[in-house]
């Protein structure tokens, strides 16, 4: 392959890696919006909490003398998913459920408040500085001639693709096949009617928050390990990008969130590849606006029908 196509391939891999993680976080936004029509701005913070818990568990296990990487990662994943789900559930219970049925703006403000609260609560208890973890999963494959241009794919990048793909498949199966998934879809279609038919909608909504938080925790673990750094503000930026991905793909649509995440990630990488990297956000968000002008409900979103 020529140097140019190798370079293109490398940037595509970079973009897909970032895009996969946007997608994992975007699902949390899109599921909540699909069911209760609300933007959960504290979702990025749940991702950040997932990263912190991963770091704490890994540091704890290593200090206990456990060195087996798979064991550490599995324990960290389970603990992070459990703890983040607890946070997700608690946030819904405390800050959103009492406000359900009021003006749409009120839960939104409550969500922004929750986001700032969690950022600062974590900052005060864990410190506002970057916390770093030494590289855990190292190495990868290289392709091409080192003297020319060498494409590198790290094992961590492959893990990110694989985990994202498997998680998405499981989630799609859950939504389309299981009883609870059907209840979720029913709630998305008509919350009031589903309630009348004898389904506990509060339970379904709580479950949505728990699933979204668990996915955010997976993203928190993967990105925490990939970048090796976490601070209380990572959730804000990641959340903003993931939210954009969700809107781009069509908010409320799960495949849309995945597609939106991948498009956003690849657009960013390709812009940085051929223009000065400060134009990255200009092009990515320009694209968002353009798509929304032509498809106001996003790429895969259904046209909005105002719920009464």
């Amino acid at each position: 392959m020529s140097e140019f196509s190798l370079y293109l391939l490398q940037q595509l891999i970079n973009g897909l890696t970032i895009g996969s993680t946007y997608a994992l976080i975007a699902i949390g936004y899109t599921m909540v919006y699909g069911i209760i029509g609300m933007i959960n701005f504290a979702h990025g913070e749940i991702y950040m909490i997932g990263s912190y818990i991963t770091f704490i568990v890994i540091a704890g296990l290593m200090s206990m003398g456990i060195v087996s990487l798979p064991i550490i990662l599995i324990i960290a994943l389970v603990v992070a998913m459990f703890m983040a789900s607890t946070y997700g559930w608690a946030v819904e219970r405390v800050a959103y459920r009492p406000l359900r049925g009021t003006n749409r703006l009120i839960p939104l403000i409550s969500a922004i408040g929750m986001s700032i609260f969690l950022q600062n609560a974590v900052g005060i208890s864990q410190g506002f500085r970057d916390v770093a973890l030494p590289p855990m999963v190292t190495g990868g494959w290289a392709l091409g001639n080192p003297a020319d241009f060498e494409v590198t794919i790290s094992y961590m990048q492959v893990i990110i693709f694989a985990v994202t793909f498997v998680t998405m498949t499981l989630l799609t199966l859950f939504i389309s096949k299981s009883r609870m998934g059907r209840a979720c879809r029913a709630c998305a279609e008509d919350l009031g009617m589903t309630n009348l038919l004898g389904i506990n909608t509060n339970k379904v909504i709580a479950l949505t928050f728990i699933i979204g938080a668990a996915l955010a925790a997976i993203a928190g673990l993967l990105l925490g390990l990939y970048y090796g750094v976490v601070n209380p503000f990572v959730g804000f930026i990641a959340g903003l990008k993931a939210f954009t991905a969700a809107v781009l793909g069509g908010i409320g649509s799960i495949p849309g969130a995945v597609l939106g995440g991948l498009i956003l990630g690849v657009t960013e990488a390709m812009t940085a590849a051929f223009f000065p990297s400060e134009y990255k956000d200009v092009v990515a968000f320009g694209l968002l606006i353009t798509i929304l002008l032509f498809r106001p409900s996003g790429l895969l979103g259904k046209p909005e029908i105002e719920k009464v």
Binding site: T17, I18, V234, A269, S277
Partner: peptide, 9 residues
């Protein structure tokens, strides 16, 4: 957090 595109360049 991600500078992979810049580094590739």
């Amino acid at each position: 957090k991600d500078f992979s595109a810049l580094i590739a360049k």
